[in-house]
Measured scan of single mutants.
Amino acid sequence: MALNTPQITPTKKITVRAIGEELPRGDYQRCPQCDMLFSLPEINSHQSAYCPRCQAKIRDGRDWSLTRLAAMAFTMLLLMPFAWGEPLLHIWLLGIRIDANVMQGIWQMTKQGDAITGSMVFFCVIGAPLILVTSIAYLWFGNRLGMNLRPVLLMLERLKEWVMLDIYLVGIGVASIKVQDYAHIQAGVGLFSFVALVILTTVTLSHLNVEELWERFYPQRPATRRDEKLRVCLGCHFTGYPDQRGRCPRCHIPLRLRRRHSLQKCWAALLASIVLLLPANLLPISIIYLNGGRQEDTILSGIMSLASSNIAVAGIVFIASILVPFTKVIVMFTLLLSIHFKCQQGLRTRILLLRMVTWIGRWSMLDLFVISLTMSLINRDQILAFTMGPAAFYFGAAVILTILAVEWLDSRLLWDAHESGNARFDD
């Protein structure tokens, strides 16, 4: 018995066209964080690309023209004298008006014999932002004059995390709450300039795509075929072959399989920071003279006294001054041990922890910024005066060393310790 099946006739004509040209192939790229070699397709503007294995951002879609970056830099340069030299806060102490600005706080630190601690604050609040705007201006002028731009481009990517104007702005709020127990506070004209400078700096850093600047100024022929001998440069993120001198053909720094002496430098910085954190938390970090009496505060006791007036601000200072430094030390110690013992479990967790400490590390400088600003506000000789204690130097040095330890660690070593050939990683 035959089955009668109805015929289905399409209502619209289906047209099949042959592909007349070869589909576009992607360029081969190595991930600078996990060293995976993959094919990167062509990316349009405002599109980002991520590593298929570790999800690290390979290409950032946010990109401004150099002219727009230069305009932002010149605007920031105009704001800087007002943000640093004009009063941020006014207080009335014992019937006398006192003005506080950024430069005055750094000068008070240096004047009291601790120039190293003052230079830490100076670099993060004044030096690094000033280098940022002058570097962008150098790129703008240098591109037109045919100057060598490689050193500036190499420095810009590392400079971003040292620009800490946003953290200093939080420190202004913390210092205001600490001082309000002794005097009446009012915002100064410099505060508005400083807030504007923070906003412009944040926007500029978020749109400063150094890798795209490398592509514009020093374009290189990408690798179009897969080759395990391809290496990625950690300076400019170019994937290719080393030249005859073993250097990256684009930025001219040595092109090595792994960062040289990464573990040794990381261990040295980490152990030194552990040693410095002990006096930083045991010795007094601030000293207040009130009517001839002397009151010393460690980091913890200062947080407890701050909690009596504002528990939320005390929580912020606790996280930045105690929780973050010790968390960074514990995480980095764990990561280094996992590399030495070739741990194969929990790779995803370790990668996330490394990215976390990379982002939060700079916030530990908050305590030094609060001390710097408070020193310029309260300084009335023996009637009422505020000065920093010996722990300030140890704390600042420990924070900087932990930042350097994270920067010096080559994250690809975590993958080397893991089993080879993993296309995915999980716990």
Rank of each mutant, 00 (worst) to 15 (best):
M1Y: 00
P6N: 08
P10L: 10
T11H: 12
K13L: 08
R17M: 09
I19Q: 11
L23I: 09
P24C: 14
R25W: 12
G26R: 10
C34R: 00
D35T: 05
D35N: 13
L40Y: 10
A49P: 05
R53H: 10
C54A: 00
C54W: 00
Q55V: 11
A56I: 12
K57E: 14
G61H: 15
W64L: 15
S65F: 05
L66F: 10
L69N: 09
F74P: 12
L78T: 09
A83Q: 04
A83C: 05
W84T: 10
E86M: 03
L89Q: 08
H90M: 04
H90D: 10
I91C: 09
L94Q: 01
I96W: 03
R97M: 03
I98W: 03
D99A: 14
D99M: 09
N101M: 02
I106A: 02
K111C: 02
I116T: 06
G118H: 04
S119P: 07
V121M: 08
V121W: 08
F122K: 07
F122C: 13
F123E: 04
I131P: 00
S135Y: 01
R150T: 03
V152T: 06
V152A: 07
L153A: 14
L156K: 04
V163D: 05
D166A: 15
I167P: 08
L169P: 03
I172M: 10
G173H: 02
V174W: 01
A175D: 01
S176T: 07
V179L: 02
Q180G: 08
D181W: 01
A183W: 10
I185N: 03
A187R: 13
G190P: 04
F192S: 07
T201W: 02
S206M: 15
N209V: 04
L213P: 05
L213T: 13
R216N: 06
A223H: 09
A223C: 07
R225Q: 13
R226A: 14
V232M: 14
L234M: 07
G235C: 02
H237F: 06
T239G: 07
T239I: 03
Y241C: 09
Y241P: 15
D243C: 05
G246L: 05
L257S: 04
R259K: 06
R259P: 04
L263F: 09
A269Y: 02
L270I: 15
L270V: 10
L277K: 08
P279C: 14
P279E: 11
P279V: 11
A280I: 02
L282Q: 08
S286C: 06
I287A: 05
L290Y: 05
R294E: 02
Q295P: 02
E296T: 05
E296Y: 14
D297N: 02
G302H: 01
S305M: 12
L306N: 00
S309Y: 06
A312Y: 13
V313K: 04
A320C: 10
L323H: 02
V331P: 06
M332V: 12
I339D: 09
I339K: 09
F341Y: 11
Q344V: 09
R348Y: 10
T349L: 15
L352W: 11
M356G: 12
I360A: 13
L368M: 15
V370G: 01
L373Y: 05
T374Y: 08
S376H: 06
S376F: 02
L377D: 00
N379G: 01
R380I: 03
R380L: 04
Q382F: 14
Q382S: 13
I383T: 03
F386R: 00
F386C: 01
T387L: 09
F395C: 01
A397T: 06
A398E: 06
T402F: 09
I403Q: 02
L404G: 03
S411K: 12
R412W: 00
W415M: 09
E419P: 07
S420K: 09
S420A: 13
A423N: 13
A423K: 07
